[in-house]
């Protein structure tokens, strides 16, 4: 079943055309890794999927509902699409528990008690039950990113977008975050990740999408893409990063 459908999406910043007609379908429970050089448009595509950037042309639907224009309120969007950022973006003045509870209480109008119950569940899922009352600054980068994942999960999104979520981490902390994502994938969560972790893309993704100059240049199962790249650009990219 198709969950996310991107049709002919264009996006330009002034004269700079960043997305030149993207078509992409992501099925329920699928894990899609988007790879490519910086500037290839992969982060912009991700940000269009939750309308942090409004695309200029084309259509994006999630669970058969259009999300572009004014079609979906931020509230409705947040119940469909969650996002985790490279720079965590936790709320530094709130504890871990408050970070996770805030949106369910404020946006969805859940009671504090039920939000706290959900918060403890999602924090357990990312292995941070004991950090409920800590402040973000008291945690390591890897722990902060896991809180950010828990915070996104608390809104029960249908798909989780991950924008280079391990790029700001020390190498020894990357593993703990990737393991959480792997567990989510195994549970059937739909994931779309922009990533530089080729090993992770190869091992966990169902499909890898290689973007080049604002277009999807090649896409397919990781074994095909990494084992038998068809285009010169992908060959060059793979030899540069592996």
């Amino acid at each position: 079943m198709t969950l996310v459908c991107v049709k002919n999406v264009h996006k330009a910043f002034g004269d700079l055309e960043v997305l030149k007609g993207i078509d992409l379908e992501v099925g329920q429970g699928e894990v899609v890794a988007i790879i490519g050089r910086s500037g290839s448009g992969k982060s912009t595509l991700l940000r269009c999927l939750n309308q942090l950037e409004k695309h200029d042309r084309g259509a994006i639907t999630i669970a058969d509902k259009r999300l572009d224009g004014e079609a979906m309120s931020p509230k409705e969007l947040s119940e469909n699409v969650g996002m985790v950022f490279q720079s965590f973006n936790l709320f530094p003045h709130k504890t871990v528990g408050e970070n996770v509870c805030l949106a369910p209480v404020v946006v969805r109008g859940e009671s504090r008690a039920s939000a706290e119950k959900v918060a403890r569940e999602v924090l357990a899922k990312v292995g941070l039950s004991d950090k409920y009352d800590s402040y973000p600054a008291q945690l390591s980068g890897g722990q902060q990113q896991r809180v950010a994942i828990a915070r996104a999960l608390a809104m029960r999104p249908k798909v989780l977008l991950c924008d280079e979520v391990t790029s700001a981490l020390d190498p020894e902390l990357v593993g703990e975050v990737l393991r959480v994502l792997e567990a989510l994938a195994a549970e059937g969560m739909t994931l779309i990740l922009v990533t530089h972790e080729m090993g992770f893309a190869r091992d966990v993704a169902d499909r890898v999408v290689f973007m080049h100059q604002g277009r999807i240049h090649e896409a397919g199962p990781p074994a095909d893409l990494f084992g038998n790249p068809q285009t010169a650009e992908l060959k060059q990219f793979i030899s540069a990063v592996l």
Partner: peptide, 22 residues
């Protein structure tokens, strides 16, 4: 930080909720 606005926005908060809580 601008990222605070983005984080609040993807969690579904509107302008006033973001101002008030974040």
């Amino acid at each position: 930080a601008k990222g605070q606005w983005h984080a609040a926005r993807v969690l579904g908060m509107n302008y006033f909720q973001t101002m008030r809580h974040v």
